[in-house]
Simulated scan of single mutants.
Amino acid sequence: MFDSFIQLVREIYHTEEFIPLHEPRFVGNEKQYLLDVVDSTYVSSVGPYVDQFEAKIAEYCGVKRAVATVNGTAALHMALLLAGVKPGEQVITQAVSFVATANAITYCGAEPVFVDVECNRLGLSPLALGEFLAEFAEFRDGAVWNKLNGKRIAACLPMHTFGHPCDIEAILQICDLYQLPVIEDAAEALGSTWHGKHCGSFGLLGALSFNGNKIITTGGGGMILTNDEKLAQQAKHLTTTAKIAHPWQFIHDQLGFNYRLPNLNAALGLAQLEQLPAFLENKRALAQRYINWARQKHVEILVEPFGAHSNYWLNALLFKDKVECDLFLGASNHNGIMTRPLWELLCNLPMYKHCQTDGLQNSHAVVARLVNIPSSVVQ
C-alpha cells in the first residue's frame, strides 16, 4: 500500500524531487500586478488593489462586505471582538483545528470551550453542541451563562476543516435558540459551499485566510466577511488603528489594531483570485484520483459531505490505528513526499489544558488516525 501511494503521488506531480504538502501556484498576473504596485509606490495598507481585492472577494463569496486583514488570525480576532466577545467570557469551538482558532479567542481575553466534531467532516457537531448547551447553558439577565463556572457564553466559532463545510445551518439553528452569534472560521474553505452558499457567509461574521499554503495566497493575509454594513465599517476602522480620516492629523478615537492588508499583498491576492475557478477544478480532479486509490486499497478517505461542494484544500486519509498511521507517515516522508498528522488537539496544548470540554470522543479518535497528503494544484 505504501509503495503504491508513493508511486501515485509521483505520477500525479511528475517529479522525483521532494513533494510538499501544499505549495502556491503563480501562473497568472501575479508578477504584472506586483510590478504595478512597486511602480506606484503604494506598497503599504493604502492602494487600489486592497479595495479591488475586498470587492471581488465579497462578490465571490456572496456577502455585502469583505474587509482585508494582515492574516487570518487577525480576521478571527477582529470578528470575535465585533461580535461582542469580552474578557472573562467563553466561546464554544472545536479542538480539531489549527491553534489560531483558540488563540483568537484568547486575544479577546476570553477562553475557548471545546465541543466534539462530526467524524465524517471534522467540523463542530450540532448534536454535541446541542447536548452541551442543554446541560450547561442557562438564560440570565438577557444572556447565556455557563452553569458550571458562572461565565457568560458569548459566541460559537465552528471551523470548516480542510475545506469541508461543517453542518453550519444546523449549528445556526441551535445557536439562534440560545441567542449566540456565530463566527465562521472559514480559513481553509474559500470556494467551498454548503447547499450552494459559500462558507463564511452564513454567520454574523466569517474569516478567511490567504496564508502561503491556502488555495489562493497573498503571502500572508486574511479577510472578514459580513452582511452587516455597520460591522464592516467598524472592522475597517478598528483594523486601521481606529484612525479618524483627516488630511494631516493623527487622531484615534479608540483602541485600534494595525491589521490592514498591504496593497502589495492584495495585488498578489487579486491575481490569485482570477485563477480560483481553475484551481478548484484542478483540486477536485486530484481528490478524485486519491479517492479512487483509497477505495482500491480499502483505506478510508475524507470526502465532501452530501449537500456540500468542497474545495478539497487538504486531502486526508484515515488509517485503522495509530500504528498504521505512523508507518505511513514514516514511509512517505522518508521517500520525499510530505505528509503530516492532524494537529495536536487544542485541549492538549499547555495553554488550553484547563479549558472545559465535552469529552471529545470523536476528536480523540480521529487525531490518532488521520494523515494529510500532498494537495497542491497539479501543474
Score class of each variant (00 low, 15 high):
8 L>T: 08
8 L>A: 11
20 P>R: 02
20 P>Y: 12
24 P>V: 06
25 R>G: 06
27 V>C: 13
33 Y>P: 10
39 D>F: 01
40 S>H: 06
43 V>H: 12
46 V>A: 06
54 E>D: 12
55 A>Q: 14
55 A>L: 03
61 C>N: 04
67 V>K: 10
68 A>K: 05
73 T>P: 00
78 M>D: 01
82 L>C: 05
85 V>G: 05
85 V>N: 03
86 K>S: 05
86 K>Y: 03
88 G>D: 15
92 I>L: 11
95 A>M: 10
98 F>W: 03
101 T>E: 07
109 G>P: 00
109 G>T: 03
111 E>C: 11
112 P>M: 03
113 V>W: 13
118 E>R: 10
118 E>I: 10
123 G>L: 07
125 S>D: 05
132 F>D: 06
140 R>G: 11
143 A>F: 12
144 V>G: 05
145 W>A: 05
148 L>C: 09
148 L>D: 13
149 N>P: 11
149 N>E: 14
154 A>R: 04
154 A>T: 01
156 C>Y: 00
161 T>G: 02
163 G>W: 00
167 D>L: 14
169 E>T: 06
173 Q>R: 15
173 Q>K: 15
176 D>E: 15
176 D>V: 02
178 Y>H: 09
183 I>Y: 03
185 D>I: 01
186 A>N: 05
188 E>N: 02
190 L>C: 06
192 S>I: 00
195 H>F: 12
196 G>N: 06
205 L>F: 09
207 A>T: 02
211 N>V: 00
215 I>D: 09
218 T>M: 14
218 T>F: 06
222 G>V: 00
223 M>L: 14
224 I>M: 09
225 L>Y: 04
229 E>W: 08
229 E>H: 12
230 K>M: 14
234 Q>L: 15
234 Q>N: 13
235 A>D: 12
248 W>A: 13
252 H>L: 07
253 D>Y: 10
254 Q>A: 14
254 Q>N: 07
255 L>P: 01
256 G>E: 11
260 R>G: 09
262 P>E: 08
268 L>Q: 13
272 Q>R: 05
277 P>N: 11
277 P>Y: 08
280 L>Q: 04
281 E>L: 08
281 E>H: 06
281 E>A: 10
281 E>G: 09
284 R>D: 10
290 Y>R: 14
291 I>R: 15
292 N>Q: 15
292 N>K: 15
293 W>N: 07
296 Q>N: 14
297 K>V: 09
310 S>V: 00
315 N>H: 14
316 A>N: 04
316 A>E: 01
318 L>N: 02
323 V>H: 14
323 V>T: 12
327 L>V: 11
331 A>Y: 15
332 S>G: 07
337 I>H: 15
340 R>N: 09
340 R>K: 14
341 P>M: 12
344 E>V: 00
348 N>E: 12
349 L>G: 01
350 P>W: 10
354 H>S: 15
357 T>R: 09
357 T>L: 09
363 S>I: 00
365 A>W: 15
369 R>H: 06
370 L>V: 02
371 V>M: 12
379 Q>P: 06
